[in-house]
Amino acid sequence: MDELVVKEKKRGLPLKTLILPGLLLAGIAVQYLELVDWFEVLEISRGYAHHWWFPPLITLLMILAYTLALPGSIFIWISGVLFMPGPAALIIALGGLGGAVAAYFFSRRLSDGMTSRITNSPLFAILQRHGDFVALSAVRLLPGFPHSVINYGAGILQLPLTAFVPATLIGFGVKGYLYATAIHQVTRADEGARFVTWQLLAPLLILAGLFLVAKLYMARRLRSRSR
């Protein structure tokens, strides 16, 4: 009987290992193949924006999207268009953080069967060494970097939550406020105004660069102490 249970577990392992990459590929397809009419979703949302329950609903939907590796950018747009930059940034930060933590534990749970193989590989040692708060913050702040890859990767590698959570909060907090402000300004400006501008990207790139410089400095100090 025990042998049958073991065989069933072994048979179930390949399916579990396919779920995470499958969700990531599905999320990329939804985003880049434009399978959802985001403008229609935005227009529907306008009719409910005045209700008290709508911001919590947007936050929960954003959490669900990031948990399943779906693009959360639509909720960033909805928040930026329908709300002032402050409340919109709060929605983005809470939704992004909640979704990241949920995705972290979701991927960690599904990758349980691979843990021993991952932790014994040389690649794991390298990624874990560069999965600290400074490095995660830098990656979070990079414009266009897929958050789902960070969330699932951190869960699979079981990176410490003490680094993952603060870095996620900083990334979504800073990005959320800058994006919400930019969207708010664009939607109230002339039709020729552009959302992606150097004024928007520069702070994110500078902050990411500073975190990377700090990371290199810390690594250099550690090497000098070990000599």
Rank of each mutant, 00 (worst) to 15 (best):
L35V: 05
F39Y: 10
A138M: 08
V139G: 01
G12V: 09
G47S: 09
F145I: 10
A89S: 11
A125H: 12
L35W: 02
N151G: 11
A219S: 14
A100Y: 00
H130P: 08
V81M: 10
P146I: 01
A167M: 00
L23S: 09
P160V: 03
V5A: 13
W38H: 11
R109K: 12
I19P: 03
R117I: 06
I63V: 15
F172D: 03
P166M: 04
M1P: 12
P14H: 06
A29I: 11
T67M: 10
G171E: 06
R227E: 14
L205I: 07
R223A: 15
L204G: 04
S226K: 10
Q31A: 06
R188N: 10
G80C: 10
E43K: 13
L18G: 04
P87R: 07
H184R: 07
G155K: 04
S224W: 12
F83C: 02
L13F: 14
I156E: 00
Y179K: 02
G12F: 15
I58M: 06
Y32L: 12
I28T: 04
R11N: 14
L110G: 02
G155L: 09
A214R: 14
P146K: 07
A125K: 14
R225G: 06
H50G: 07
I118L: 04
H130F: 15
A135L: 07
L94M: 10
A182T: 15
V5S: 15
E3Y: 08
A167Q: 05
H130E: 12
A29V: 09
A214N: 13
G12Q: 14
I19N: 02
G173R: 04
A214Y: 13
G209R: 05
M62K: 07
G47D: 09
A154Q: 02
T181A: 14
L4T: 12
F39M: 12
P21L: 10
Y177N: 09
L24H: 03
L24P: 03
V149K: 04
M1I: 09
M84Y: 15
Y177S: 07
A135V: 13
K10Q: 11
L18F: 13
